[in-house]
Design a protein around this nucleic acid. Structure first.
Length: 444
RNA sequence: GUGGGUAUAGCUCAGCUGGUAGAGCGCCGCCUUGUGGUGGCGGAUGUCGCGGGUUCGAGUCCCGUUACUCACCCCA
């Protein structure tokens, strides 16, 4: 059979690359759990009518169908989830009686979208989400909290610096209302084009499509170009002379989030108020965030999220939520491809136990057993080849140590990077902590 | 969904106006008979994406097809 070819948009990693992803997941999980977020995993399918809400994303949904399905099949109308928020909202409703609110959870799972793949854009990709959801109400301080947790989580990853660009929908909405603009959605859509169009062109569109006066359009642009790393945006917005209650509320909230995240931020993660960030999705009602990675701005955001006052609604209760999503695949796959990140070795083993000849393989097996009993990952040489070849087996796999059982029954362990070989006690030897497990390295 | 590019060894690629396929790296062996890496010598490997056409002859030209890839759209 001819060699199979990859399927575009469905990335697969080699073992030494998977190490990077696994390490990132472990790191995120540690931070999430430190903050009391519970891990859940939802099924990968949802009823199609729950996923399809009339958005453009609809046509990107993969539906599930049995090859021999007839119309009455019970799996008719199932589809793969395209994010983790919709399944989570459903999960909350389904288990509302068994969950404690406010409920905080993290979730790291693949999602599927039938888009045309490109760099950083896949049809199957893994997201890491954290959300906090309340019943009927969710105090604002959770907005600050959830952003802080993600700032901390990403800070612990060995990725290039990332930037949290924060805004608040109340601020935008209040500003536009105070300005006298009515079609908020249209205005946001036009402002979003600042990426591609010159400010003058955007202003023209505001006049044409949103019905703004030239004066109003100018004000909108002034707002949209405010971008600062502290709370000084409050004064700058006020200076624009628009007054509105909702605007005040939005300003206060955004200031609180920016300030709250500042102490968690550092060299690896910066936080800014960027008043042109809106996010396309309609369900955001307050805090919004988009995350960008330095040197990888062409990927667009590597994460995003915000506040949604109606995450879920069962008719009796509403469940407001606030959350952030981090695109693991989008972040990691390009970094791995560029050689920015790599696995430290191809196998978990820290030690290869050499085999002198097949008659003494049991002695080598015994060494491995002893090492494993102390938590040292190791494997026994596949063949009793010349020692030079056995060392090469280790070298190819990136295994740092080779263990030899001498003819007289004594033991030696060799660090094949330095060539140093020393006597070792099979009942006590452990590798340096840095060599114990495969990890992520930055070759560049 | 729309438009462009590409497809040759494990990898990166060369192969001119058509004449039975190459390099570098990697891999294997030996120099080196129980200790790798450097060096020297030797060696193996391809349905040239797939199908059809033109031709005495196609990796090369034409048509089709599939896959990958880039851009638009949109998003993590």
């Amino acid at each position: 059979m001819a060699r199979p070819t990859p399927i575009s948009g469905f990335p697969e990693l080699l073992p030494e690359q998977r190490v990077v992803e696994q390490h990132a997941i472990d790191t995120l999980r540690r931070t999430f759990e430190l903050h009391g977020f519970a891990g859940i995993e939802t099924r990968v399918v949802e009823p199609l009518d729950r996923l399809a809400k009339g958005g453009e994303i609809d046509k990107e949904i993969y539906v599930l169908r049995r090859l021999q399905a007839d119309d009455s099949a019970s799996d008719a109308g199932l589809a793969l989830h395209f994010d983790l928020t919709v399944p989570f909202a459903r999960y909350v409703l389904e288990n509302a009686g068994k969950l404690e609110f406010p409920f905080r959870r993290y979730q790291v799972q693949p999602v599927w979208r039938g888009e045309r793949p490109q760099v950083g854009r896949y049809r199957q990709f893994t997201q890491a989400d954290i959300d906090i959801v309340g019943r009927d109400e969710l105090p604002f301080h959770h907005d600050v909290e959830v952003m802080r947790v993600m700032v901390e989580a990403i800070s612990a990853l060995p990725v290039p610096p990332v930037s949290f660009q924060l805004n608040n929908r109340k601020l935008i909405q209040g500003f536009y209302r105070g300005l006298g603009l009515t079609d908020l959605t249209a205005a946001i859509r036009v402002i979003d084009k600042l990426d591609k169009l010159a400010p003058e062109a955007v202003a023209a569109l505001l006049v044409e499509q949103v019905g703004a006066s030239e004066e109003q359009a100018a004000r909108c642009l002034e707002l949209a170009t405010i971008r600062v790393g502290d709370t000084s945006f409050v004064e700058r917005v006020r200076a624009l002379g628009v007054t509105d209650e909702l605007l005040d509320e939005g300003l206060a909230e955004l200031a609180a989030v920016v300030e709250g995240c500042a102490s968690a931020a550092g060299e690896r993660v910066t936080v800014e108020a960027n008043l042109r960030i809106a996010r396309g999705l309609d369900y955001y009602t307050g805090t919004v965030v988009e995350i960008f990675m330095e040197g990888y701005e062409h990927l667009k955001s590597v994460g995003g999220g915000g506040r949604y006052d109606r995450l879920a609604d069962d008719g009796r209760n509403v469940y407001p939520g606030v959350g952030v999503s981090f695109g693991l695949t989008r972040t990691l796959v390009p970094l791995i491809a560029d050689g920015v990140l790599a696995g430290s070795r191809k196998v978990p083993s820290a030690v290869l136990v050499a085999v002198a000849d097949e008659e003494t393989r049991p002695a080598s097996d015994e060494v491995a057993r002893a090492l494993r009993s102390r938590g040292v990952p190791c494997e026994v040489a596949p063949t009793a080849a010349r020692f030079g070849k056995q060392i090469r087996v280790a070298e190819r796999r990136g295994i740092p140590f080779v263990w030899f059982v001498q003819d007289d029954g004594s033991h030696q362990v060799k660090d094949i990077r330095s060539g140093d070989q020393v006597a070792a006690d099979v009942a006590a030897w452990v590798p340096p902590a840095a060599d114990l497990r495969a990890g992520t390295v930055r070759p560049g």
